[in-house]
Design a protein around this nucleic acid. Structure first.
Lengths: 229, 229
DNA sequence: TTGACTTTGTGTCAATATGACACTTATCAT
DNA sequence: ATGATAAGTGTCATATTGACACAAAGTCAA
C-alpha cells in the first residue's frame, strides 16, 4: 500500500545558536550569508535537512561546513514553524544550541558562508529571518540550564580557575555573585576538583587550576541529585 | 529568483502526549489507529502538519479531531527525526505534551480514530511507531517541569484540596511527601489560595477547597521568581 | 446517641543552608 | 622595596528544611 501522494511536505532546516566565552564575555557565532535571501546579512549557521540524515546530523554538518566547528555538544532547543519565517516558502526549522570552548576551536568561514565570526551576545548585527527569536530563546534556555545543571564547563578550557568559572556564571546569569559563597557552593558539589596546577604568566598571585569531574557528575546524575548553583 | 526546486522536503507530523489525573493515578490518552500503518494499534494522537498551519495549530487540531479535547495546555516537547521512525517514508515529528483536567473534558473517538481512551501511564498497550520513546521523554519533562514550575494545577479541577495536590505531586514525582511540610511550602508561594468552599459528600471531615492564583503567578513570573516544590 | 472510622489540619525543634561581610597572601612589574 | 592586582579564606545571624504525632471534624452504622 502506498501513501506517498497524500502527505504534505515542508522544507525543513536546522539553525544553530553557538555560544562561547572569551575574556569573560558571552559570545555568539554568526555567519554571513552568501546566498539569497538575506545575502550579505548575518544569521545563525544552518541549512536544509537532507532526507537521509537526522536533524542533529544536519546541524553538525552545517556547522562544520559553515564555520569549521566540529564535534560540538549540541542540544535541541525548539522547533520554529511560523508560516512567514522564511520569505521563500513555508520552512520549518529545528533549532539547536551549543556551548563551545573558544580556546579549543578554530573558526573560519568556508565555502558555504562569506564569513563566520564571534560577536558579543548583546552587541551583534541584526539577524536574518526570525533568528533573533531563536537567539532569545536560546539565551533563556542557557540561563535556566546553567542554574540547574553544571554546563558551564563546556564553555571553559579543561583547566580553569574558580574566578573564571564565577565570571562565567555572572555573565550568563547577569548577576554579581559573592566570591566566598560561590566557591563554597561549587566545591561542595564535589564536581570541581583541584588539578594541582596553577596559572602561569599572570601579573598577580597565580590561581589554582580546577577541572570538572565528569565521572562524578555522571554518577551523581544517575543517583538523581540536583546541582543548583 | 526562485529556489523551490532545490529544497529537500520531508513529511512533517505532530504527536501529542496527553496526561490526565484520575483518582490519583496518572493517565495517558491514546487513540486506536484506523489507518495503516499500525492499523488497530494504540498510538499517540497526531497527524500531518498542513502547509498553512504551525505545528502547534496542527497539534491542537489533531487532538480535537481524534479525541474531542479542546483548548488544552500544550507545550512543545521535542522533535524526533530518526530515519526509520515511520515505515512508510522519512517522517519528522514534532512532539507536544499536554496536561488536562479529566473532569473538564469529555473524550470520544471521532472519525479519525477507532477509539480514544485513557490508560494508566505504567500499564498501557504497546505503542505504534517510536511513540514509547516520546512518552518516556514526556514523562521526564513532566517531572522536571513540575519540580520547578507550578503546572500541577492544569491537571486538577479548578477547586481542589491540598491533599489532592499533594497526591498529584506524589504520583508524578514518584515520592512520598510529608503532609505538613508540603502544605507549608505550597502556601508560602502564595499561589494557592483558599476559596472558602469545602468538599461535599465525603464520608469524613470535609477539606477546604483551594484554587490557583494565576494572576499572582504571572506577576511573580515576570519578576523572575522561582517556584520549587 | 454513641462509637467506630476516616481524613483534615496543625507546631516544634534540631540540623542545615544561605547570604552578608573584609582582610591577608602571593606574585609580578617598576 | 613598593605598588598593583587578583587569590584565597571564616564567621555569624538568619532562613530553610526535614522529621515527627495527635486532636478535631464529619460520616456512618448499630
Amino acid at each position: 500500500m502506498s501513501f506517498e501522494y497524500e502527505f504534505p511536505r515542508a522544507a525543513l532546516t536546522v539553525d544553530c545558536v553557538i555560544f562561547g566565552i572569551d575574556e569573560g564575555d558571552l559570545k555568539l557565532m554568526l555567519i554571513q550569508r552568501n546566498l539569497e535571501p538575506f545575502k550579505g546579512e548575518w544569521a545563525l549557521a544552518g541549512g536544509f535537512v537532507r532526507l537521509d540524515e537526522t536533524t542533529e546530523e544536519a546541524a553538525l554538518r552545517e556547522l562544520e561546513e559553515e564555520t569549521g566547528l566540529k564535534k560540538v555538544f549540541l542540544e535541541q532547543l525548539y522547533t520554529f514553524s511560523a508560516l512567514n519565517r522564511d520569505p521563500r516558502e513555508r520552512v520549518v526549522s529545528v533549532a539547536y544550541y551549543a556551548l563551545v570552548r573558544m580556546s579549543d576551536h578554530q573558526v573560519f568561514a568556508s565555502t558555504d558562508a562569506d564569513d563566520a565570526a564571534w560577536f558579543e551576545v548583546d552587541a551583534h548585527p541584526k539577524l536574518a529571518f526570525d533568528h533573533q527569536n531563536i537567539v532569545d530563546m536560546a539565551l533563556d534556555r542557557l540561563k535556566n540550564t546553567l542554574r540547574y545543571r553544571p554546563i558551564g564547563f563546556e564553555l571553559l578550557p579543561k583547566k580553569f580557575t574558580l574566578s573564571e568559572l564565577q565570571h562565567l556564571y555572572e555573565v550568563i546569569l547577569e548577576t554579581k555573585l559573592d566570591k566566598r559563597n560561590f566557591r563554597r557552593r561549587v566545591l561542595k558539589t564535589g564536581l570541581v576538583v583541584e588539578t594541582g596546577d596553577v596559572q602561569k604568566d599572570v601579573a598577580h598571585r597565580a590561581a589554582q587550576l580546577f577541572s570538572f569531574d565528569k565521572k562524578r557528575y555522571e554518577k551523581l546524575k544517575r543517583d538523581g541529585f540536583n546541582f543548583e548553583v
